[in-house]
Design a protein around this nucleic acid. Structure first.
Lengths: 205, 205, 205, 205
DNA sequence: TATGAATGAGAATTCATTCAT
DNA sequence: AATGAATGAATTCTCATTCAT
């Protein structure tokens, strides 16, 4: 339940997020944002301290939501494979509901993280890494994942794989999120190759 | 064999590429490049027309090399699975030899492609797409890859997966390129899950 | 006896005076004043026309009071030395009761006097000059002050000396105004040097 | 001996100093400075980092020179009264040679000192205070100055008295610096009143 | 080739002021 | 009286680019 003021703020944040996502943080001018909102650039400063603080609110808001959903999943105590599926689906849902946030997170993190006000980006990265490496090594220990995996490589692989989808996943397109998430999961979990060796499994040509 | 002039040019391009990769094209000023090269910003203009033309040379040079190696592989007429392996290995080798080029390509394409002088970025994208969807559908047709794959999704998945590795692959690190490429291939081709008894799946032709 | 409205006005003027004195007229924003008063900047405009008119009221109010006390002293027809003592004491009392007014008067006069609405600053300066040069030359004529004085220089000396005390005189500090005024008078009238044998000087009428 | 570049810098610093002194630091825009120098405002940044750094160079340059001359005087080991005369004359000479520096120092110190890059202003103040209180108490101890002086008050009196002269001393005017300094010294050392008590000294009416 | 001074367009930001509610 | 959203002009600063030397 937002009052008038917060609603306007949220609206402006949405406009800014879209522009940042589409043209990049640096290439989007404060004027662009104001114009898109139908006001003058100076008026933006009635709502926000600075361009940086706009990006800050977008990113921290998005990440807070995302990690809240991760925390919920972890609390459910699922088995590794199910947990990974749930986390990936939650991530794709974030792509669906916050495509701009994801995009900004992906593209701008490297540069913004240099500023101390964005230190939380680094912290979130650390949390994310812990989350995944724990799930993966639990999975290996419990026999759900292949023993020969290099956990670190797989973690990076998944981390990048998931978020990069924002570049082409179209929220208004034909494929619903759930389905895209499923396909990603299938590739990551099962690979794209036909199973050759185990003849009795009915695989092969 | 380069003459004095070209050698200096190449050197400057290398310096610029590193800065573009590290801080982004927009955030890197002409002065930054000149300073890193030990000259004044005005002096850069004896070597290059503009900042854009520096980025242009870096990107087109990198892409020309990359696609030359792809073309060679295609000409060899390998079987789909082997071809895909070769193309992925070639891509990782590009990451190894031109990390800055890859990084710039990845981060700045979206932005630079708006300028007509960078139209070739779009063309290369199209080529890349054709290359992969052809290899993938050939592979499915020949029974090397699972029939239930969504070629488009897998193409995008691989495209993003490969290049994104530049963010964490460290050319001077412990893992040699070849090995990283192998691990990527293993995940993509075989998946990370332990093969379960897929009898009821009824997969295969 | 002030009604509600005027009391609020006076309160706001006091807040503004303090901020102008502490941070300067230009550096103090209308928002700063409003915030210090616990209202929003737009609301200040229900009380005052403009930022300028706030400064105007502060300065003219302070100067009116000050010159009223001068006029009273002049009307008393004191001897030069006593008159000067009285005027200086009155000035120090103004520093005590209106430290912010004095500070603003001192720091901002030069700048504000360019605006026609502040023409009275110039007029007051002229009055002040007349007051002092008259007292001083009367004093010299009547043998109270040394004959070799350059009236103009002494006038400026005193003018600056008196007001500049606002920078360090602390209204809440240990020294009461009266005492500070006395010490100033001692220095100005008697000097800091020990009286040497001035026989050869041949001073006096 | 300045090279081309430093000469231009010095020239620009002089222009800026004059404007800062005349209109105040805040009221002088970077554009004003540039215009007065016959260039565009952006071009100023070829020479200086920021408006602040211009003020910084003006102030620190002026203060370095001033304190160098003080240090020389102290090193001469003069008697208190002579030392004070020398220091005051040196100060008036600074007013003569750097009127803008003095004016900026006087008017802007309070505001600029809030910025950490101007911490040296505070340090200089401390040095100045030590210089004067030492000279004054030495003088009292050696019988050159009156015993009943409040050193602190006299120090402040002199400090303010000296610099405030910049407001009306006109370097191109009729009175040479030396003479103005002398008159100031006479007032401060001897006072303006005719000596009354010591009848044999021939003072009084 | 290189310097260094300058351009000029445009960036983010500030702030006194207005005004409908 | 007060709010809060907005204006619009001005301000500091940035930066790719030019050009005489």
């Amino acid at each position: 339940m937002l009052d008038q003021g917060s609603r306007r703020r949220a609206e402006l944040l949405g406009i800014a997020a879209q522009l940042f996502a589409e043209h990049g943080y640096r290439s989007t001018t404060v004027r662009d944002i104001a114009e898109a909102a139908g006001i003058l650039s100076g008026s933006l400063y009635h709502h926000f301290d600075s361009k940086e603080s706009i990006a800050d609110e977008i990113l921290s808001g998005f990440l807070d939501e995302l990690f809240a959903s991760y925390t919920e999943i972890l609390a459910a105590g699922l088995k590794p494979r199910n947990a990974i599926e749930a986390v990936i689906i939650a991530s794709f849902e974030a792509i669906d509901s916050h495509p701009h946030g994801v995009s900004i997170y992906q593209t701008e993190t490297k540069h913004l993280a240099k500023l101390s006000r964005f230190d939380y980006l680094e912290h979130r990265n650390t949390e994310f890494r812990k989350l995944w490496t724990t799930m993966l090594s639990d999975g290996v220990r419990q026999g759900a994942f292949r023993e020969d995996l290099d956990i670190e490589v797989v973690y990076r692989f998944i981390r990048d794989t998931v978020w990069v989808a924002v570049h082409w996943y179209n929220p208004n397109g034909s494929l619903p999120v759930g389905q895209v998430a499923r396909q990603y999961l299938t590739i990551v979990l099962e690979g794209i190759a036909v199973r050759r060796r185990p003849a009795k499994r009915g695989s092969g040509t």
